[in-house]
Design a protein around this nucleic acid. Structure first.
Lengths: 271, 271
DNA sequence: CGATCTGTTGATATCCTTCAATTTTGGTGG
DNA sequence: CCACCAAAATTGAAGGATATCAACAGATCG
């Protein structure tokens, strides 16, 4: 299995390892995906609503978000993309994008060609499964957002979002003390939570007063995770970080072993 | 291509045909999925939060919903499942369900075994792609719900939901005049829209007064779709009913033709 | 034909928005 | 380093949308 070693994992590997242990070869295949990177400045539009989907990508550095602009000029942020997120692997089946993607800070991402995707999925079934798992996680995150917007008040919503962002950063090895870089303005928080920035501001200050968080200079620390969770009415389970059921993991291990014998001819030593 | 004929399509076929034209063999494969049906009474729990995911299923008759119960006892309905919806094909990768599924009326569904799924996807690449497309549609529906809950007022939310339900019924051939059976109580509408049933009631009545809808005896008719869309700030595009891009459809046609030659030995004539 | 769930109505309370400053922060050029 | 500017954060006052509470009417169902 990969990485008992001290070597720092890439965020993709860290993230997908939550599905189950990846082999060294899996890790190599994933790292190979992220070789050619494109760079986007803060505020840049990565994908525009209405455009024809081009290729999938892995976000390697920075932070981005999916969002919709409404006729009224309002914006709803739909999701945040963090390092290690593999985006829109399948979206080529759609004629047009129904939302935009924008960089929140300077962001780097690696485009993945259609062919690369197909080859990867065929040759590395365990990676394919892990990617599928990560798509399920993304859906679970969307469900949690619906719950938050539908049934929680401003405090609950903010607490929920801050927990999620911190937990996801922890899951990709970018934080171990419940403190993260948070490049979001209160306006962006508001556009995510279905609130106004004025009201977000008031709740942020209340949280600060109550020693729940500290937030200054774009650095967020959760000072009382337990109480924040209570306010959010939330626990970490929805991120499904516990990994896949054993029998599934074993199934893919077996598949991989079978394949290893079958096609050494081409899958083997190159690179 | 299937169904220039007058024969009524099954909802699954009707739905997936929006991806692109299906072959007669595709249609047969899909119909075969729905042979053994289970029946659930109104109010029955089909899947319980916390349970281990068992098998995927196709909803063939009736209506169901995904929902979460909060500690406070409140309920948030996450999504509606209509006939033709293929649910949780991939969810076996998760250890536990993070939400429940319940029948809203008497409902029938056909379970799909793991093996059946794998065989189907392998033998019918176009069906596999269509299923993938339908998963994308489901995600798009979730995004639209986030927009509705985050940025629209009660009128906008209700208008949006009613449009969606009608459009989806039209897409599966269960309505052609913007009128449908709507087995939902105002409580259920409220639990979907993040409102109270009292307030939903007031908006429903306002819509009735303004000749936007008629809703009685569980029958809903949209009387002024154009104005409802304006109120919702919505158009039908997000359902991606226009189908996949031509080159994708052609790609899968080609794949299917290739396969047809390759494995007549076993894929062929048996029912 | 009573019991229970759903729909309806009114009065009041609350959360959040809106509007309108003002202060603080961060970035940029001189 | 300072001057300047724009964007973000902060504050207060007032208004509006939706929730809450409570009661009752109507429907549905065994």
């Amino acid at each position: 299995m990969a990485d008992g070693s001290g070597r720092t994992q890439s965020p993709v590997v860290a993230k997908l390892s939550h599905f189950g242990p990846l082999s060294d070869e899996d890790v190599r295949a994933l790292d190979a995906l992220c070789s050619r990177e494109e760079r986007f400045e803060a505020g840049a539009e990565i994908v525009r609503e209405g455009a024809t989907p081009r290729s999938a990508f892995v976000l390697t550095h920075g932070m981005a978000c999916r969002y919709r602009l409404l006729p009224s000029g309002e914006r709803q942020i739909l999701a945040f993309l963090l390092p290690g997120d593999v985006c829109d692997l399948h979206v080529c089946l759609l004629r047009t994008m129904d939302h935009s993607i924008g960089a929140l800070v300077q962001t780097r991402l690696a485009a993945i060609e259609w062919n690369t995707t197909i080859a990867l999925l065929a040759r590395h079934p365990r990676v394919a499964a892990a990617l599928w798992w990560s798509a399920l996680q993304e859906e679970a995150i969307q469900r949690e957002r619906i719950v938050a917007l539908g049934r929680r008040n401003a405090r609950g919503r903010l607490a929920y979002l801050l927990c999620e962002l911190v937990w996801r950063q922890i899951a990709i090895g970018q934080s171990d003390d419940h403190a993260i870089q948070l490049p979001l303005t209160q306006i962006e928080l508001a556009d995510t939570l279905g609130l106004t920035s004025v009201h977000v501001n008031r709740i942020v200050q209340e949280f600060r007063r109550n020693q729940l968080i500290s937030l200054e200079k774009r650095r967020l620390a959760l000072l009382d995770v337990k109480r924040l969770q209570e306010i959010a009415g939330l626990n970490q389970d929805y991120l499904h970080l516990g990994g896949a059921p054993e029998e599934v993991v074993r199934h893919f291990d077996q598949l991989e072993r079978d394949r290893a014998g079958a096609d050494l001819p081409y899958g083997g030593g190159r690179d």
